[in-house]
């Protein structure tokens, strides 16, 4: 039959398809172009931007947002959202300081913090799946709860950390800050997880069509809880990094980060309606947010205007996303 032969030959032809043209068509590519253009503009406006010192500075800023964005992306791909990332991060900084006070070895502190962080977010996951509360509301509540506990525990005062766990935030390997290395490791693992593994595939399936996922034998609730658990672990990791950088746990550290993180995820090509997005895209999205923040500083934009600008960028990114989905 004519049509079959055609279909088969075109199948063969296409599977060998040229990699470059595929790359140029991919979503990540357009985000990458946007990042380059942004960098170009900023470097023209401020020659300081391309200094080695500043580049590592930007990368360090990006690292916390980037790590959180990997977790947030997984949640958003399943069709959920987590607004509590910033305050859980702050809470985990405080927990790190408390654990450090017990003079535990850094390795123990590290794993303990990861487990606690994961447990905190798992609660959000359980509430959204088992009691079926909207994740928006659950995590909004969790945001307040985590922030409240941070303030209660510290009495609102910063706690200094004297423990080698701070290496995660303030260490260097050669000229490269440790957080930057951690971010790349998290991104690499996240990318492989999302694109090559069974649970990663399930995340996309759940976000695409929950009912079909269920009928294909995927345990939908488990997948949704899992992404929250991962998010919590990454909040803990970021909490250790951020408090380690300053060697102090600030109870209000990380507040407002959810904005940058969600914006990074959406700019990186994930859709808030779920089912779509890539880790590479999200990391580029985080880079765009980091460069934006850095350029505000370099160009002398006041801190208050920065807050306004981030809000505008977030709404802009989400608006683009919803226009895009409407068109489909």
């Amino acid at each position: 039959m004519l049509s079959i032969n055609q279909a088969e030959t075109s199948l063969q032809k296409k599977s060998k398809g040229n990699l470059l043209s595929k790359l140029a068509k991919s979503k990540e590519f357009s985000v990458l172009v946007a990042l380059f253009v942004l960098c170009l503009v900023v470097s023209l406006l401020s020659p300081y931007f391309l200094k080695m010192q500043n580049i590592f500075n930007v990368l360090r800023q990006i690292s916390v947002i980037g790590i959180l964005a990997v977790g947030e992306a997984l949640i958003i791909i399943t069709g959920g959202i987590d607004l509590s990332v910033g305050s859980v991060l702050g809470f985990m900084g405080v927990m790190t300081a408390l654990l450090a006070k017990l003079h535990l070895p850094p390795v123990i502190i590290f794993f303990a913090a990861i487990i606690i962080g994961s447990a905190v977010s798992t609660i959000s996951g359980l509430l959204t799946t088992k009691i079926k509360i909207n994740p928006f509301i659950v995590t909004l509540g969790m945001m307040s709860i985590a922030k409240g506990f941070s303030l209660l525990i510290t009495g609102g005062m910063p706690i200094s950390i004297e423990n080698n766990i701070t290496y995660l935030g303030s260490g260097y390997i050669g000229p490269v800050p440790v957080p930057v290395i951690i971010m790349f490791i998290v991104a690499a693992i996240g990318h492989i997880f999302a694109s090559r593994t069974l649970p990663g595939r399930n995340i996309y399936a759940v976000g695409n069509n929950e009912r079909a996922a269920k009928l294909s034998g995927i345990r939908v609730d488990r997948v949704k809880i899992m992404v929250f658990s991962i998010m919590g672990a990454l909040c803990a990791l970021s909490g250790m990094i951020l408090s380690g950088t300053l060697k102090t746990a600030e109870p209000t550290a990380g507040s407002g980060y959810e904005m940058d993180v969600i914006a990074a995820v959406v700019i990186g090509g994930a859709s808030l309606s779920g089912g779509e997005g890539s880790i590479i895209g999200v990391i580029i999205g985080a880079a765009i947010m980091g460069v934006l923040r850095n350029s505000f500083v370099l160009l002398g934009v006041s801190a208050y205007w920065q807050v306004v600008a981030i809000g505008v960028v977030t709404i802009g990114a989400v608006a683009l996303d919803s226009l895009k989905t409407k068109r489909d």
Binding site: T197, L198, R201, N202, Y204, A205, N208, N209, R211, A212, A213, L215, S216, G217, I218, G275, E276
Partner: peptide, 23 residues
């Protein structure tokens, strides 16, 4: 409504229920 993962590839749609065995 119950079958397709519209945003996913043909390959991914076909193997979805059988994936644990392909891992």
């Amino acid at each position: 409504t119950q079958g397709l993962f519209l945003g996913m590839k043909i390959r991914e749609n076909i193997t979805m229920a059988n994936l644990p065995k392909l891992c």
